[in-house]
């Protein structure tokens, strides 16, 4: 376990909005136009979620946003979907890149590069 964890680099922190751990590939989205290319199980990363992203949110294995609080849209939806969510990272859309493999801990608000 320790050897595994040492391979993971903590790259981002935010508010722990929905508990759980997920690993997957980042997909940065900004609106409905991204729905066609959003993969099943992808990690949705956005400045902030909005209703047009509903298709992607329903496919996501986790959600990460730059903005938001515990009762913001991504937080509420993630809890109902039972997927991890970290909000208010401030720089997720800048620091993460499409295809990056990350691990999200929605219980601590920590995001690791794996």
């Amino acid at each position: 376990m320790k050897a595994e964890q040492s391979k993971q680099k903590l790259i981002l922190r935010g508010i722990a909005a929905s508990a759980g751990i997920a690993e997957g590939k980042v997909k940065i989205v900004s609106g409905a136009k991204d729905a066609a290319t959003f993969p099943e199980g992808g990690i949705l990363v956005a400045e902030m979620t909005e209703p047009s992203m509903v298709i992607m949110m329903n496919k996501a294995s986790a959600i990460v946003t730059d903005k938001g609080g515990l009762t913001s849209h991504p937080a509420i939806v993630s809890r109902e979907l039972g997927i991890p969510c970290v909000v208010a990272t401030k720089t997720a859309t800048r620091d993460l890149e499409d295809g990056m493999k990350i691990r999200i801990d929605g219980g601590t608000g920590e995001i690791y590069l794996i």
Binding site: P51, V54, M57, N58, H73, E80, L81, G82
Partner: peptide, 12 residues
Amino acid sequence: GKFYNSLWSLVF
């Protein structure tokens, strides 16, 4: 959860 999200998104 997805059903709830679909309604939440519609309301939003």
